[in-house]
Simulated assay, not measured.
Amino acid sequence: MKKVICIEGMRCGHCTSNVDKALREIPGVSDVNVDLAAKTATVEAADSVSDDAFRKAVDDLGFEVTAIR
């Protein structure tokens, strides 16, 4: 499945790198593309990966997930 995660609080390349790394560490995630300008992360993952797993990974970094679609 493909999900787009809207994220507030990312301000630089270091932020996007941390989000990328955290999302890739979730079991079942196969690809991540973080876009600082759009404030999104596009994730390819197995259907078994829950939105809560994405939200927790981002929230644990101190950023805010505003939507997952």
Results as ranks from 00 to 15, higher is better:
N18I: 00
V19R: 03
V19K: 10
V19N: 02
D20C: 06
D20W: 10
K21Y: 10
A22E: 07
L23G: 14
L23V: 07
L23Q: 03
L23F: 11
L23C: 08
R24C: 13
R24G: 04
R24D: 03
E25Q: 14
I26G: 09
I26R: 07
P27F: 00
P27K: 09
G28D: 01
G28C: 07
G28T: 01
V29H: 02
V29W: 08
S30D: 03
D31P: 00
D31R: 15
D31H: 11
D31Q: 15
V32L: 05
V32N: 10
V32P: 10
V32C: 12
V32W: 13
V32S: 13
N33P: 02
N33E: 09
D35C: 03
L36I: 10
L36F: 06
L36A: 07
A37P: 00
A37S: 13
A38K: 15
A38N: 15
A38C: 13
K39L: 10
K39W: 00
K39S: 15
K39T: 08
T40A: 13
T40Q: 11
A41S: 12
A41H: 12
T42N: 05
V43A: 03
V43H: 04
V43G: 06
E44C: 03
E44P: 00
E44N: 14
E44V: 12
A45V: 07
A45S: 13
A46Y: 01
A46P: 00
A46W: 02
A46H: 09
S48W: 00
S48Q: 06
S48Y: 01
S48A: 15
V49I: 12
V49Q: 05
D51S: 12
D51K: 01
D51Q: 07
D51G: 11
D52R: 12
D52K: 14
A53N: 13
A53D: 12
A53F: 01
F54V: 03
F54D: 11
F54I: 09
F54Y: 15
R55C: 06
R55Q: 04
K56F: 01
K56P: 02
K56T: 12
K56C: 00
A57K: 07
A57D: 10
A57I: 08
A57L: 10
V58G: 13
V58R: 12
V58A: 02
D59Q: 11
D59W: 01
D59G: 06
D60T: 02
D60Q: 08
D60F: 00
L61K: 04
L61E: 00
G62V: 04
G62Q: 10
G62D: 01
G62E: 08
F63P: 04
E64I: 10
E64T: 15
V65L: 12
V65H: 03
V65I: 08
V65F: 06
T66V: 15
T66I: 08
T66W: 06
T66H: 11
T66C: 07
T66Y: 03
A67W: 02
A67F: 05
I68G: 12
